[in-house]
Design a binder for these strands. Sequence first.
DNA 1: TGCAAAGATGCACACTCTGCAAAATTACCT
DNA 2: AGGTAATTTTGCAGAGTGTGCATCTTTGCA
Lengths: 226, 226
Amino acid sequence: MHGMSEKSAAQGGLRERKKRATRAALAEAAVRLAAEHGAEKVTVEAISAAAGVSVRTFFNYFDTRDDAFVVIDAEAGARMRQAVLDAPAALSPLQALREAMAAELAEAEQQHELWRLHARVLHASPHLLVRTLGAHMADETELAEVVAARIRAGGATASAPPPAFATDEERRGALDLYPRLLAAVAGTAVRISVEHWCARQEEAAFLDVFQEVFALLAAGLPAPPA
Amino acid sequence: MHGMSEKSAAQGGLRERKKRATRAALAEAAVRLAAEHGAEKVTVEAISAAAGVSVRTFFNYFDTRDDAFVVIDAEAGARMRQAVLDAPAALSPLQALREAMAAELAEAEQQHELWRLHARVLHASPHLLVRTLGAHMADETELAEVVAARIRAGGATASAPPPAFATDEERRGALDLYPRLLAAVAGTAVRISVEHWCARQEEAAFLDVFQEVFALLAAGLPAPPA
DNA sequence: TGCAAAGATGCACACTCTGCAAAATTACCT
DNA sequence: AGGTAATTTTGCAGAGTGTGCATCTTTGCA
């Protein structure tokens, strides 16, 4: 045993640290260039040059050019899953997810500049927003599993009148379905919150919009007054 | 004014009909080839050849190769919007959307072969599912506008206790937010329904899954029993 | 029939992305 | 240290995607 004592900060060997640095450099370069010249006009060559690596290396890190505009923070998903697991047992799944996402979003918003740049790039070219959605979708399955684990562990079971099932099989199907649906809807909620917040030129605090969206979901999307 | 009286069946001149035919031929060729050889191994050249047009023409119809696997029915969105507008005023927005989507899905399922082929292709390569999502997202904005129009017209206003707003501005923001959220969540609901139905090898009727998902949404995503 | 508009096509060209093998870098051992 | 194995970076060749432009064919219409 040598000096592998610190595991709080930049853990891992030189190799992993360099890889993370390169990946981050590529992603940041991509976003900055896209914010300046428009995403469509940014070539892989330009991104690679800005990050100080070869074009070939770019494709060692990202399967697609667009992926560089999309991932930004690769560990966000894992952090969120942990937060869901760590949430107080009294919270319903929807509430737990809301808290976990709010914390993650609040943290992301602290890196102000890059975050807003990223939001602007996505807003400027919707097809990238779709890719972002797709990236989140990859996490969606894992997030659903965490939610399922939480439910099995028995956190805030059936706060509302528990839906009655006709057959056991039907209930089993629902238990499989519910976590997936919850994870997917939560992701959609984030997206709509960002879009609405962007559309209104940030006249309201982002977290307020986010909370309102979750309130609507928890209320079952009731019809608003005309 | 001449003979532009028929508007029910294959309307439009020879030009438009040919364009629709070419587009449909390309889309169908793409799906069939993808179902047989795997989507990644199908080149634009092969699709174009199967549809009897040049490669260049393919790109006159689709911006991207992947788009050919995604659109299938270009008018589905418009039909659904019309259905939302035509729904009985007694239905809540969520219910109206559920009915419209159920009708559209039931119709799509009647073309059995191509529909299932399409579902299989999308299930085989998730990144195409993302593109499909994206295509639906393009409709999402228009769908949201239709929902907003329905609400303004005053269909089933505030069935649940109407959420109280602190300020007028807050209510205005919510009115703008609600239709977007509803459209997006409904799209997500369809996706999850299809995924869950596919994952279970079609052991349940698709429309039953779909109905269950909407029931969960209407109930505010309550925690299921552990 | 003839003219104008719109679509289809071929061609050149830039860009994306993938193997493959060689060179450079890091990890780990004595 | 020094050396070897593992991993990463890089260049290169090549297939495939996507675009602008000029040309040719088809359709719409008088």
